[in-house]
Design a protein around this nucleic acid. Sequence first.
DNA 1: GTTAGCACTTAGTAGGGTCGTC
DNA 2: GACGACCCTACTAAGTGCTAAC
Length: 581
Amino acid sequence: MLYNRKNFFCQEPEPAVSPGKRQKAKAKVEEEEVWRWWEEEKRADGVKWSTLEHKGPVFAPRYERVPRNVRFYYDGKPLELSEETEEAATFYAKMLNHDYCTKEVFNNNFFKDFRKSMTPREREIIKDFRKCNFQEMFNYFQAESEKRKAASKEEKLIKKNENEALMKEFGFCMIDGHKEKIGNFRLEPPGLFRGRGEHPKMGMIKRRIQASDVSINCGKDSKVPSPPPGSRWKEVRHDNTVTWLASWIENVQGQVKYIMLNPSSKLKGEKDHIKYETARRLDKVIDKIRATYRDEWKSKEMRVRQRAVALYFIDKLALRAGNEKDEDQADTVGCCSLRVEHVQLHKELNGKENVVVFDFPGKDSIRYYNEVEVEKRVFKNLELFMEHKKEGDDLFDRLKTQVLNEHLKELMEGLTAKVFRTYNASKTLQSQLDLLTDPSATVPEKLLAYNRANRAVAILCNHQRSVPKSHEKSMENLKEKIKAKREAIEKCESEYHSRDEKKGKQLERLRDQLKKLELQETDRDENKTIALGTSKLNYLDPRISVAWCKKHDVPIEKIFNKTQRTKFLWAVHMADENYRF
DNA sequence: GTTAGCACTTAGTAGGGTCGTC
DNA sequence: GACGACCCTACTAAGTGCTAAC
C-alpha cells in the first residue's frame, strides 16, 4: 500500500459528523491552513518571530458566593464569612475528599493563609483549624458537580458553544502571518497549591491573578490586547527573542508562569525537530564518548572520575541531570544530586556481581528503584566516592550539572545531559521495533509489538502512573469476554464439519476476535503502572513511529491520537518508510 | 566562580467527553 | 437512552539549561 498524506489519514476513526462531502471539505480547509514551516529555512539569529498579535489571556471567572443556606461551621456553630474568607474556605472545601486534606503540612499551610484572608473579627473567632467544618460547602460542590453531569443535552450544548466561542476569540494568535493555536490561554485560577511529594508549601493559597500582575508580549505594530475595563497590564513589551505571549509571577513559589503556544505550533515543532536532530548527532559520536568516559574511570583526578561515573549512569540508566534544589521544595534528586543514602553497594546480589541499588525520589517525587549490575571499576569508584561520607552527603561532591554540561559541550556541540535521555529513548524504540515486529503479523499483533517497544522506553525513563481505579474491574470484564469467546468457539467447533464453508468462516472470525482480546489483555496488564504517553510525547522521535507505520501498513491513528498527530505533523511529512533514527 | 532569574521542556493527574454495550 | 469504561485534554507542577549579574 502506498502512503501519500491523503491515504495516510484516510482511516480517521473519529465519528463522521456528516457524511462524505462536508468532512472532506473540512479536511481540505484544515490542510490548507497548515503552515508547512518545515519546508522553510530556519532562522539562526535567536529571533523567534517578526509579527505577533493576540487577545491576551482569559481571566478566571469572578468568585460567586455560595447560597446562604450553605454554611461554614466553626466550633459546631454556623459562621457567616466575608466574601474573601468564604472564597478561601471553598478552596479547601472543594478538596475535602482528597488525600491532601489528611496531611498536616497541607492543613497547616492552608490554615495560615486562610487566616490571612480573614477580617480582624473573623481572625478573632477562627483560631483552631480542628474546629472548622467545611462539610456543607463540600456537599454543595458535590451536588453542583452532579447537576452539571445531569444537565440536559441543550444545556450542555450551550456550555460547549460558549467554550468554543471563547477558544475562537482568545485561543489563537497571529504569528508571522499565520494563525496558531495557543497552549494555555487561561490564567491559572485561584486555589490551593498542590505540590507533589512532601512539598513544604502544599496547601498554601494561590491568589487570584489581576491584570496588574500580567506582562504582555506582542509585536510592536500589533494591536495591544485590552485589559479588563478599569485595569492596566503590569507591562507591555515587544520582545521577539522569546516565545511567550503573557507572563505573571505566581505567589506561592515566586516563579514566572507563561502563556505559550500549542505544541502544534511552528515555534514548538521546530524546537522539537532540533531536539531529535541533536540526539541523532549524538548517535554519531556515542562510541567515542563511551570510550572516553570509561577511560576516565581511571583518572587521577577525582572530579574527572566522578564526572565519568555520573555520565555512565546518565547514559546507561537515562537518569536526569539532577540540578540543585532549594530548601523550600520537595526533596527530590537526579544523577548529580544523588546522596549516599540513595545508593547501596552489593558485591553480590541475587546471583549478580557488583550491584548498585538505586532508591531515590526523582522528579515529581516518583520513586526510582533499580538494581543494576555495573562494571567492576564503576563499583570500586563508587566505594571510593562513598568513603568517609555520612547520610546527607553528596555522592558526587565534586560535580555539578553545569560542570558536566560544559564538559559535554566540548564533546559535541549542543550536547547536554538531557540529550542522552532523548537519544537512548529513541534508540531503544527503534531497536525494539526492529526486534519485535513480525512483518507477517496482523495489525493487532503489530500494535502489541509497538506498545511493548514503547513500554521498554517508558520503563527505561521511569515513567510511572498510579494503577487506574477501574483496572481490576476492566481486567475482569476482559476475562469474562475471553471466556465467552472461548465458549462460542467450542460451540462452533462442535457444529462444524469440513464442507460447511459458512461455519468455517464464522470459526475463523471468532478465533481472530479471541486473539485480539487476548492481546488486549496482555497489553493492558503490562501497562498497569506504566505511562506510555510521556515518552511518546517528549522522548521518541516521531519519525521512527511514522516510518514504522508506513513500512508495516499500520494506520498512523492506531499509534498517535489526534493531538499527537497535529503535534507531529512535521514528522508525518518528513519521514518515509526508510527513515532511521 | 557562584547564584538568581528566566525561558522553556517534561511530567502526572483530574475530570469531562466519547464510545460501546445493553 | 442510560450507563459505565476508558480515552483525551487541560492543567499546572517540576524539571533542565542558559545567561547575566555579582
